[in-house]
Measured scan of single mutants.
Amino acid sequence: LTVQLGNLEWHFDNPEQALKMAEELAKRYQLKVEIDNGTLKFK
């Protein structure tokens, strides 16, 4: 699973870790998370 923020990307083997990080980033920057083809992206 990949977490993508702008041109930064983090790759996780563990989806739970990816979701946890995505939630933290979304909270911190007040963004919405969307999943696009196995990639978590922020809007």
Results as ranks from 00 to 15, higher is better:
23 E>Q: 13
33 V>H: 03
1 L>F: 13
21 M>N: 02
7 N>I: 10
25 L>K: 00
38 G>N: 10
12 F>E: 01
13 D>P: 10
17 Q>F: 10
19 L>Q: 06
22 A>T: 03
35 I>Y: 13
42 F>Q: 01
9 E>D: 04
29 Y>K: 01
34 E>F: 15
9 E>A: 13
16 E>K: 12
18 A>Y: 04
36 D>K: 09
35 I>V: 10
12 F>D: 00
20 K>M: 09
3 V>E: 02
43 K>Y: 15
43 K>N: 07
21 M>W: 15
4 Q>P: 03
31 L>D: 00
1 L>V: 09
23 E>A: 12
39 T>M: 11
4 Q>R: 12
2 T>H: 06
34 E>T: 12
41 K>S: 08
20 K>I: 09
13 D>Y: 06
24 E>I: 15
31 L>V: 05
18 A>Q: 01
29 Y>L: 09
33 V>C: 08
42 F>V: 14
17 Q>Y: 11
5 L>K: 02
38 G>E: 05
28 R>N: 04
40 L>I: 15
38 G>Q: 07
7 N>F: 13
2 T>R: 11
28 R>I: 08
1 L>G: 03
31 L>W: 08
23 E>V: 12
43 K>I: 14
26 A>M: 08
25 L>Q: 00
21 M>V: 09
3 V>P: 02
7 N>L: 12
31 L>P: 00
14 N>V: 08
18 A>K: 00
10 W>I: 08
34 E>C: 15
43 K>G: 05
22 A>W: 05
40 L>N: 00
20 K>P: 01
32 K>H: 09
4 Q>L: 11
4 Q>A: 07
5 L>Y: 10
21 M>F: 15
10 W>G: 00
36 D>M: 11
11 H>Y: 13
25 L>A: 01
36 D>F: 12
10 W>Q: 02
2 T>F: 06
37 N>S: 07
12 F>W: 04
2 T>G: 03
15 P>K: 11
42 F>S: 01
15 P>Y: 14
20 K>G: 05
37 N>E: 08
23 E>L: 14
8 L>R: 15
5 L>P: 01
2 T>N: 07
38 G>W: 05
34 E>A: 06
30 Q>D: 10
41 K>N: 04
41 K>Y: 10
39 T>I: 15
13 D>E: 12
26 A>W: 09
28 R>H: 06
26 A>L: 06
32 K>P: 03
6 G>S: 04
32 K>A: 10
20 K>D: 05
40 L>K: 00
32 K>D: 06
21 M>T: 04
40 L>H: 01
30 Q>S: 10
16 E>W: 13
19 L>V: 08
33 V>E: 00
36 D>Y: 11
15 P>S: 09
25 L>H: 02
3 V>T: 02
30 Q>G: 15
8 L>N: 09
13 D>S: 12
43 K>V: 14
1 L>W: 15
2 T>L: 08
26 A>C: 10
16 E>M: 13
33 V>M: 10
31 L>A: 02
17 Q>P: 05
18 A>P: 02
25 L>D: 00
